[in-house]
C-alpha cells in the first residue's frame, strides 16, 4: 500500500544561547524517517522532551523543519513555509487535536463557534449550510446539540475533548494528529473518547498519529508504535512486536516502568536512573542513550547506531539489538 504520509530524514534544530548569538544547536528532531499508511493508527511514545510535540508540529506545518522531506499524498509539505500554510488546501488534510482541549479552544468561542471556525476559513461555509454541518459533526462526535451554545468553561473535560475532535474532523482531514488527547481525562471518559476515535477512523477512513505517555492506551488502539529518545527514533514496529519483544534498551526500560494492575506484588524490575544527555550540540558519533543505558559498552560511543531490522517491520537503533 502506498503511504499517506512519508517522512524522510526530518530534522529540527533550534538555535539556543543568549545575547542574540546562537551558542548551541538544540537537536529537537534529528534525522527522523517513518511513514503512515491510509487508515493506520501509529503511536508515538517517549519521555518528556524527546521531541514528540516538535515532530507533530512540523508535520502539521506549524513550524518549518531545518532539513528533510514530508511527503503527503503527492506533495512535499516540507518545502512549503509554515507562514501562509494555513490558507493552503493541504492544510485541511492534516488536522491536530491538542492535549488540553480546554486550552486549545478559544475560551470566548462557544462550542458551535469552535467547530464552525475551520469550516468558515477553509471551506467558506456560511448560514444554514454551516449550521447543518456543525450539527452533523456534533451528532457524529456525540455532543448534544443543546450544548453547542456553551462556552468551554461550561463543558466537562469529555465534552471539551469531543469539541476538539469535532473541530479537527470538520474539514475532512485524512490524517489526524492527536497530542495526548486523553491525558487529562478520567479513565471512564477516556474509554468513551477512544471508542469515538476508533469509530470515526472506521467511518471516515482516517489515519491517526497518536502521541501518548500511556503505553496501556497505545496498546489498545495503535497498529504500530514509534519510540523516540532525545530527538531520534530508537525503535518502531507493529504494536504487538514492540511492546511484546522490545529490542531497544530504552523501550525495555520504558515498558518495565509502566505500573501493572497486578494481584501479586511485582518482582524487582530494572529502573532507568540518571538524566538524559543534553540535546544541545550532541556528539553525532555517540548513541544518544549511552551513559544512561544499562547495556552500554565502549562501542556505543564510537558510532551512532542506525535503525536496522530486528523482525518483520520492526526496526531498532542499537548496536546490540
Amino acid at each position: 500500500m502506498t503511504a499517506l504520509l512519508d517522512v524522510i530524514n526530518l530534522q529540527k534544530i533550534y538555535p539556543v544561547g543568549g545575547g542574540g548569538k546562537a551558542r548551541g544547536q538544540l537537536h529537537a528532531v534529528d534525522d527522523v524517517s517513518f511513514s503512515i499508511a491510509p487508515g493506520e493508527t501509529v503511536g508515538l511514545v517517549g519521555e518528556s522532551g524527546c521531541g514528540k510535540s516538535t515532530l507533530v508540529r512540523l508535520l502539521a506545518r506549524l513550524h518549518d523543519p531545518t532539513a528533510g522531506a514530508i511527503h503527503f499524498g503527492d506533495t512535499d509539505l516540507a518545502g512549503m513555509k509554515a507562514r501562509g500554510f494555513a490558507r493552503r488546501p493541504e492544510r485541511a488534510a492534516i488536522q491536530m487535536v491538542f492535549q488540553d482541549a480546554g486550552e486549545s479552544i478559544n475560551p470566548r468561542y462557544t462550542a458551535f463557534e469552535a467547530i464552525a471556525a475551520p469550516l468558515r476559513r477553509l471551506r467558506g461555509l456560511r448560514g444554514t449550510a454551516l449550521q447543518q454541518r456543525v450539527e452533523e459533526l456534533a451528532d457524529a462526535t456525540g455532543i448534544p446539540r443543546a450544548l453547542l451554545g456553551r462556552f468551554p468553561h461550561q463543558l466537562s473535560g469529555g465534552q471539551k475533548a469531543r469539541v476538539g475532535i469535532a473541530r479537527a474532523i470538520a474539514v475532512e482531514p485524512r490524517l489526524l494528529i492527536l497530542d495526548e488527547p486523553t491525558a487529562a481525562l478520567d479513565v471512564s471518559v477516556q474509554v468513551v473518547i477512544l471508542k469515538l476515535l476508533m469509530d470515526l477512523r472506521q467511518r471516515l477512513g482516517l489515519s491517526y498519529l497518536f502521541v501518548s505517555h500511556d503505553i496501556n492506551v497505545v496498546r489498545l488502539i495503535c497498529d504500530r508504535v514509534i519510540v523516540m529518545y532525545l530527538g531520534k527514533i530508537v525503535e518502531q514496529g507493529p504494536t504487538a512486536e514492540v511492546l511484546g519483544r522490545p529490542a531497544h534498551p530504552y523501550t525495555r526500560a520504558l515498558l518495565s516502568a509502566v505500573p501493572e494492575l497486578t494481584l501479586e506484588p511485582p518482582g524487582p524490575r530494572p529502573r532507568l536512573g540518571g538524566e538524559p544527555r543534553s540535546p544541545i550540540n550532541p556528539d553525532p558519533k555517540v548513541c544518544r542513550f549511552f551513559g544512561r543505558c544499562p547495556d552500554g559498552r565502549p562501542a556505543c560511543a564510537d558510532s551512532m547506531p542506525r535503525l536496522s531490522p530486528v523482525g518483520p517491520g520492526h526496526l531498532a537503533a542499537c548496536h546490540f539489538a
Binding site: V187, S188, V189, Q190, V191, V192, L194, K195, M198, D214, N216, V217, R219, L220, I221, E260, L261, L263
Partner: peptide, 29 residues
C-alpha cells in the same frame, strides 16, 4: 482488585486499560 464489592469500584476497574484487554471489553461508567 480481585473481587470488588461496590459497583463503582467494579465499574472503575472495567474502564481501566491494561494488557490483555481490548478496547471493546472496556466500558465507561
Amino acid at each position: 482488585l480481585a473481587a470488588p464489592r461496590h459497583p463503582y469500584t467494579a465499574r472503575l476497574l472495567a474502564a481501566t486499560p491494561r494488557p490483555g484487554i481490548a478496547l471493546g471489553d472496556l466500558a465507561a461508567i
